[in-house]
Design a protein around this nucleic acid. Structure first.
Lengths: 250, 250
DNA sequence: CGCACTCTTGACCGAGATCAACATTCGTGG
DNA sequence: CCACGAATGTTGATCTCGGTCAAGAGTGCG
């Protein structure tokens, strides 16, 4: 299930993304691509990272889409972020030593695992790389803060629309689509766990978006039919995603 | 309103905290305390950091308690974190160049401002300091993720209790109290904006906690009367606060 | 074939919102 | 010094958004 080979090609998913959103020096890029990598393919619903584990390795999503989540004592699940190819879903474990979140695959996922100590060592040797990963952490945090608004201060319809807008925008930013549609295979239960809603209500909200010709969504392909109107309805402003390249831009 | 003097004493609020929760080398500590600092006193409700500003400076809470927030298009406010003495409420601006959140004082606040470029430069020169601030970012992010549970997957009473537990724990971690009580002057409207609740409902939940002898709260002083029971009720587990010192511990 | 998962729909319920009124405190200006 | 208004806390009445419960249909897998 887990193999180590020549990793350069796989790790390019990560470096290309870091290059695109944060800028990345040639040296940092080369160093990253020389990291040892264990690959795994995880089926939908399968676990990529166990919560609370001693974090001796750091995951990289190479293909597919995953989410991280936390559980309440009473068994409730809250999904706290989505992860597209090139994302480091348990980056926090590098600094904190453990993960408070579990990560599971939403679609079939190709995942790479890098030894934490190797990545840490690389960060020590290359402060500019550490800066990029720090910035990546900040970006993830900004997304979580926006999700707080989805749940706390937007109604169900707007929250759902906002998530869908974000998903499309992040696919665009990752170069995975060029229009306002993308692959997105999420169960309605998962959507509910992102938004603090019940499955039943998510279902009705999706139907409402469909009925109003704001989205089309079938066979795991999501299309936003009226981007402007959906953004307005959802109070969506992509600024928090920092799609524009950061201060390290070349 | 804003003065620059000898800052060592003021900056010790920051360094002492970083030392306590992340560990901090003597050199990093000394370097930090040599930073130029502009001080300001902000009245409750006053603005510490404007949202979306070009972030040319970085704030440090020296005394008092503040919160950061985001606004929805329809005027709703969502508070996304609290900040105690020693916290860097707009740390994200260091990496991202702007802040998506505004920061306002909840109690009378003494605030220090450090020029962003000076702090950035220091991070470049001292990777171990950058690592500490990165870790601080991770810690803040972990708190926000926990808040997502408060709003999304806990009922109003548990969410409120959870916030109160967190407030007390963070005061303890900051050495501002040694028992299960602390100063906490928050309006019920603010509490509502942390939890995605209306002021009226917050009021009723507080009364319920009082009636059940779980908390006492008057004159801006909060006391948890039955820590164990409140933790159970609120599903509170302080692990996410990482009170224990991290990997840099001496 | 049968079970498990997901989507869908309907009926009903309840946690929390909204609206409105009043009390209290406090700062501010006359 | 007092009148005034602005915040805040409190309470009651009513409403609604979204939850819960239940059942059926479609799909995929062992």
């Amino acid at each position: 299930m887990s193999v180590a080979f020549d990793n350069t090609l796989d790790l390019q998913v990560l470096t290309a993304r870091l290059e695109r959103v944060h800028g990345l020096s040639q040296g940092d890029r080369a160093a990253l691509e020389r990291l040892p990598l264990h690959k795994a393919v995880i089926a939908p619903g399968g676990t990529i990272v166990w919560a609370g584990n001693p974090a001796d390795r750091c995951a990289i999503v190479l293909e597919g889409i995953a989410f991280s989540y936390k559980l309440t004592g009473s068994g409730g699940r809250q999904i706290v972020n989505l992860h597209l190819p090139g994302d480091l879903p348990d980056l926090q474990s590098l600094g904190l030593g453990t993960t408070d979140t579990g990560v599971t695959a939403m679609s079939p996922c190709h995942v790479g695992y890098v030894p934490s100590d190797e990545l840490s060592a690389l960060c020590s040797r290359r402060p500019s790389l550490a800066a990029v990963l720090w910035r990546e952490t900040l970006l993830q945090a900004a997304i979580v803060r926006e999700w707080l608004l989805n749940i706390g201060r937007r109604d169900a319809l707007a929250g759902l629309g906002h998530i869908l807008c974000e998903v499309v925008m992040r696919h665009r930013a990752a170069g995975l689509t060029s229009d306002y549609g993308c692959r997105f295979r999420a169960t309605q239960t998962a959507l509910g766990d992102m938004l603090g809603l019940s499955t039943v209500h998510v279902n009705r909200m999706i139907q409402e978006l469909r009925r109003d010709r704001l989205i089309a969504w079938d066979e795991g392909h999501l299309t936003v039919l009226d981007w402007g109107r959906l953004c307005t309805l959802s109070d969506f402003d992509p600024a928090y995603l920092h799609i524009d390249r950061g201060p390290h831009a070349s």
